[in-house]
Amino acid sequence: MIEVERAGRSFTHRRKAGVLRRERHVVHAVRDLTFSVAPGEFVGYLGPNGAGKSTTIKMLTGILTPTTGRVRVAGLDPSRRRTALARRIGVVFGQRTTLWWDLPLRDSFELVRHLYNVDQGDFRRRLAELEELLDLGSFLHIPVRQLSLGQRMRGDLAAALLHAPSVLVLDEPTIGLDVVSKAALRAFLRELNAERGTTVLLTTHDLGDVERLCSRVMVIDHGRLSFDGTLGDLRATAPEESSIEDVVARLYTGGG
């Protein structure tokens, strides 16, 4: 479903090094990344801040063009076939809403339906389903800017699923949510993956997400994969540590 082969992305910055002289300075956000995700997998994508998680997500969704290597998602090259890909994947950014700030949630969904050309019947059916599963009913008529973070996140998730994508990419979906909202969101995602077989790739700093959801974990550090395996494999890297937080901390600080 997702194939990444030796992909890399670097950014060139120019900074002042004198009155007129500018120094070129290359930052490799992602260097030489290779992995693949099979249909139906639920993958947690971890890494310390600035390790290259968001850059990877942006390459997978076609927002950024990789400088080296090859990326395929649902059989397409994201940066070349961005619009075709958009119909097959759903994307949610935890820190940024894709909904329309001034519009009621229901109108936002209606816009999404037109943007993605979703058939009216399919749309009604899916919306009814999502409304029930995500408990959207009580705030469908409220403008997005007035929603609480938990409500907004549920709205964002529903918007990303209205066109029934086969891959769902979530960038820190549980950030800032309270324990109840988190639990509801996790239950929904687990069911989505189990019942529909939707492939899910999720980045997070909350290891609770990983423990409860992910069949597989990848860790990126300094732009390269430093771990790829099951949750059990992850624990096995540091068997003397009792909590998963400590295991991952060792991995991040280079102890693992």
Partner: peptide
């Protein structure tokens, strides 16, 4: 503001 990312993940020009 970063909202151009959102624009790019939609299937319309």
């Amino acid at each position: 503001s970063g909202s151009f990312d959102t624009v790019l993940i939609r299937p319309v020009s």
